[in-house]
C-alpha cells in the first residue's frame, strides 16, 4: 500500500503529472470572480466563502479524470486488480494520493485567495477547517465517479454530470460552515455534519468504487 501511495505521489509530482494544475485553476477562478460580479469588497467578502468552496470543488473535479484513466490505459489497474491487495484498499490509497496532491494544496492556498476576495478576518480559520474536513470527501466521491466512467472514451464531461450531484451535501455543509465562520456565527453544527459525511464516505465509498471498477475491468 505504501509503495502504491509513493508511486502515485511521484507520478503526480513529475513533469506532466498534473500537480499544480488544480491549484492554478483555483487561482484563476478566484481571479475571474471579481471580473464577473464587480470589484466591490462588501459584496466580495459576503460571497467569498461560497466562491472559495466552489472553486476548490471544481479544481478537485477537474483533476479527477487523471485519477484512474492513465492507469487504465497502461494496464496498471489490471495488475492492481490481480494483486493480493484488495481493490477497495488500492482505491482508498489512490483517493488519498489524489487528496494529498490536489485537496491539501487547495486547503493551504485558500487563505491566500481569501485575501483576494476580501474574506472577513474570522473567516480564514473556519474556511481552512471546513476545507480540510470536506476535501477528503470530494476525493473519495470523485474516485467513485472516475471508477464508473473509466471505460468511457472522453468520459470527463459525463463524470462531471455524475459526480457534481453527489457533491451537493458536502458543498452545502462546507460552505455553510465557512459562511457562518466568516459572519461570526457558530459553525459547529455544519462542521460536525461535514465531518460525518466525510467519515461516512471514506468508510463506504471505496466499496462502491471497487464494485464499479471490477465491472469495468471484467
Amino acid at each position: 500500500m505504501k509503495a502504491l501511495l509513493i508511486r502515485d505521489l511521484t507520478l503526480a509530482f513529475r513533469a506532466g503529472g498534473g500537480f499544480g494544475l488544480g491549484l492554478a485553476f483555483f487561482l484563476i477562478v478566484t481571479v475571474l470572480v471579481p471580473f464577473g460580479v464587480g470589484p466591490h469588497s462588501a459584496l466580495l467578502s459576503q460571497i467569498a466563502p461560497g466562491i472559495l468552496w466552489l472553486g476548490a470543488l471544481l479544481a478537485c473535479l477537474l483533476s479527477l479524470d487523471r485519477l484512474l484513466a492513465l492507469d487504465w490505459e497502461d494496464g496498471t489497474l489490471d495488475l492492481l486488480a490481480t494483486s493480493p491487495l484488495p481493490l477497495e484498499a488500492a482505491l482508498s490509497v489512490k483517493a488519498l494520493a489524489h487528496w494529498l496532491t490536489t485537496g491539501l494544496p487547495l486547503v493551504l492556498a485558500a487563505p491566500v485567495l481569501g485575501i483576494l476576495l476580501a474574506l472577513p478576518a474570522p473567516g480564514f480559520f473556519w474556511l481552512v477547517v471546513s476545507l480540510a474536513l470536506g476535501t477528503p470527501a470530494l476525493s473519495v466521491i470523485g474516485t467513485f465517479g472516475a471508477a464508473l466512467t473509466v471505460g468511457v472514451k472522453r468520459g470527463g464531461l459525463l463524470m462531471s454530470l455524475l459526480v457534481l450531484p453527489l457533491y451537493v451535501p458536502t458543498l452545502i455543509f462546507g460552505a455553510e460552515a465557512a459562511r457562518r465562520g466568516a459572519t461570526g456565527m457558530d459553525p459547529a453544527t455544519p462542521l460536525l455534519m461535514l465531518a460525518g459525511i466525510t467519515a461516512g464516505t471514506i468508510a463506504i465509498m471505496p466499496f462502491a468504487s471497487a464494485a464499479a471498477l471490477r465491472v469495468n475491468l471484467r
Binding site: P165, L166, V168, P169, I172, F173, T189, M193
Partner: peptide, 11 residues
C-alpha cells in the same frame, strides 16, 4: 446521496 441532499438542503 439524494436522501443526504434532502436533509442538507433542509438544514
Amino acid at each position: 446521496f439524494a436522501v443526504l441532499s434532502r436533509y442538507a438542503v433542509n438544514f
